[in-house]
Design a protein around this nucleic acid. Structure first.
Lengths: 282, 282
DNA sequence: TTGCTCCTCACGTCACGTGAGGTGGC
DNA sequence: TTGCTCCTCACGTCACGTGAGGTGGC
């Protein structure tokens, strides 16, 4: 019979943890003094405690361990839990390696430029969105602006406008022609089909996003930076680029100097989005 | 100006998190209505929020992020934090890969044997321990038992016995001769030097441990199992084996049948310990 | 007027660590 | 008798999620 501190040094498990395992019913003491409530343990309990420790090292939660300690647990069920653990761990390793690549790229970038970049690129899932959609083949940005305004007006008249910024999807860009889709978020699906159609802008598992403040020239630079980032971080483009207009600006159309635009309270703000997948998964 | 829910959908960060970041001072709203306490945000706050999200993705804590958001942060300090992050992540990946190997080995073992092993092997650091130590060259287990008893008696007379089991270190085993060290835990260092000397049993960074219940024959089988485990898990032996006698038993000396010994309440219980290192680090 | 949104607590998460305050044991 | 050990709360950790209960806004 060992008192709790002796059993703790014997087993190299803290007294606090032993009390915790008692509370959870994982390892009740062999004996409890009814007078003093002191806990007493025996060496026979050591193998069970070691099983707990090993299973904890494998990454199981104490609740799972409670089940795993059952002697009647069928071998198949044990295997299933181990396989699930394996999948979890593999996924976590993937995530951490991805994270490691990001940290390293950031360090390299800092070494090279000597300062932080003026933008942040983030990777996240995008959920699908109800929109009013119009497809078109265009030649100039002015035509795009016109189309955007027209669809906005259409949706406003239907009183369906949701309080979210509009998105343009670039389905194809060749020479001087681009196939675009203008997508205006709606709060309820539009009724009927017109030149503006109800649609669901599809979700994207992994979207590389960059928010840019300023005019057109900077925008194409930002776009280049985004594609470089995608390359150096081991991703591949996996769908058509999108632009989300967080704020329109007259400065977008006028060709003003960047310094002015950046400090201008009405400066345009645009999110460039590119769907990606891990290059290794392609 | 966006109300919190609109800014949440815009930024894809939950309203609850936005409130949380406000509380921590990471991202106070651009405006708070003094009447209703409603929070209002602007698109200009989006880049800062995105920085928070990116830094969170890199694995920084919100407290660290608070510091990293400071525009005056020297580039060197930023680099240091990134390097520290890198080290952390690398270590975590190591750990998870180790864990993965353990889970896979366990699955393989289960496939092969169709049932769980009768013992658990665990890996942990062992801290140094104050002991009374006696070195000797022996030939038989009986001589070892005799020596153990003699040292125990010596320490008892000095009233220095600590309530922990004795350990034997096997410094060398050749043919019919073994160089052993008997180490009895003491509560205070022994005074003076005798044939029993005060010593510190050194700590071990990584010790593979197996607790065995039963007699000598089973013990050597357990020892084989432990060395196999060390091999298949990618470790190497890195020091002399130890045995910790959790419970002595007369059955240890008598050659009784294993079934009897295992069920016997006085069965010996021995922890076999082997210092190891990762083979890849050797 | 009716939902809808926002607000502020307050509690839960997971596996303990760290005192606080009090009592038995040697 | 004096420390020492044990006991049971209770709170903190980290980044939120999930109601509870109440109020402003359209």
């Amino acid at each position: 019979m060992y008192r709790i501190s002796d059993f703790a040094t014997l087993s190299r498990v803290s007294a606090k943890m032993l009390r915790h395992y008692d509370e959870l019913g994982l390892l009740p003491p062999a004996h409890i003094d009814p007078e003093t409530d002191y806990r007493f343990y025996t060496v026979e309990q050591l193998p069970r405690l070691n099983r707990i420790v090993v299973l904890k090292d494998l990454g199981f939660s104490l609740e799972q361990i409670a089940g795993l300690l059952d002697d009647d647990l069928p071998v198949e069920q044990l295997k299933d839990m181990l396989r699930e653990r394996r999948t979890d761990i593999e996924q976590r390793i993937q995530e951490e390696q991805q994270r490691l690549r990001q940290v390293e790229a950031r360090l390299a970038q800092l070494e090279q430029a000597g300062r932080q970049p003026g933008y942040e690129i983030l990777l996240r899932p995008i959920s699908p969105m109800l929109v009013a959609s119009a497809h078109a083949q265009l030649h100039t940005d002015a035509e795009l602006a016109e189309l955007l305004n027209a669809v906005e007006e259409f949706v406003s008249r239907k009183r369906a406008r949701a309080a979210r910024p509009p998105t343009v999807v670039y389905h194809a860009c060749e020479q001087a022609m681009m196939k675009v889709e203008v997508a205006i978020p709606v709060s309820s699906p539009l009724q009927g089909v017109d030149w503006v159609r109800p649609a669901e802008l599809p979700g994207v598992n992994l979207m590389a996003c960059l928010v840019h403040t300023g005019n057109d020239r900077g925008l194409s630079q930002a776009c280049t930076a985004l594609h470089q980032w995608i390359d150096t971080h081991g991703y591949q483009v996996a769908g058509p680029m999108r632009e989300r207009y967080l704020r329109y600006s007259s400065a977008l159309d006028l060709q003003l100097p960047p310094a002015f635009v950046a400090s201008h309270p009405d400066a345009a703000m645009t999110e460039i989005q590119v769907p990606v997948i891990l290059a290794s998964a392609a």
